[in-house]
Amino acid sequence: MIKLILTTNDVLNIISNISEVIETNRQYLTDLDAAIGDADHGINLDRGFKAVKEKMPQFLDKDIGAILKNVGMVLVSTVGGASGPLYGTFFMRMGNVVSGKNTLDENDIVAMFEAGLSGIKERGKAQAGDKTMIDAMEPALNELKSTLSEGRGLKEAIEAAANDAYNGVLMTKDIAAKKGRASYLGERSIGHQDPGATSAYLMIKTVADYVDKLQQ
């Protein structure tokens, strides 16, 4: 099995795909936020990724680290709310880890994801089980690592990660929020799916779908 490698071009494509997925799910994410938050999560992310898309031409000649850092900065300065600094930090931290690189291998991807997630945890002081985006990301990261360590390759690993992210999303329905706006609802937040976990899953799934279509 040939090891899969992501190029700068792949990264740009994935970001562009994520923009589209967010646009498509703008209303869905907003509706989820209406139930337990303030009805803006889809609107916020869509505003951010639209700005990212607009700035994309300026990133074309940059390395992957710089691209991701720029994406993070655009998100930070356009999304606002809770998800802005969180996703912004996520992308900036990922960029930091792969600074100067023009290709990403398995190890890079794990390291990036790990750094991004710690960034989110530091910034938001939340942990798994608080009914946040972390509930999609942490199981995904764990699954990514264990699948890769079994030598099953990036394609399968990211697909497995996306599956576990999805399970994490479903799990957020069963728990009460401890962080973010939904926490004000206390027990009343139970039964509702977390919008941030959902958007995190959608992004991971977008990566999986892209990788799945790559020639090996």
């Binding site: 303030d38 803006d40 916020n44 930070v76 300065s77 999304v79 709310g81 802005g84």
Partner: peptide, 10 residues
């Protein structure tokens, strides 16, 4: 900020 959305750091 945007409607009901915190302003951004910049």
């Amino acid at each position: 900020g945007a409607v009901f959305t915190s302003p951004t750091p910049d």
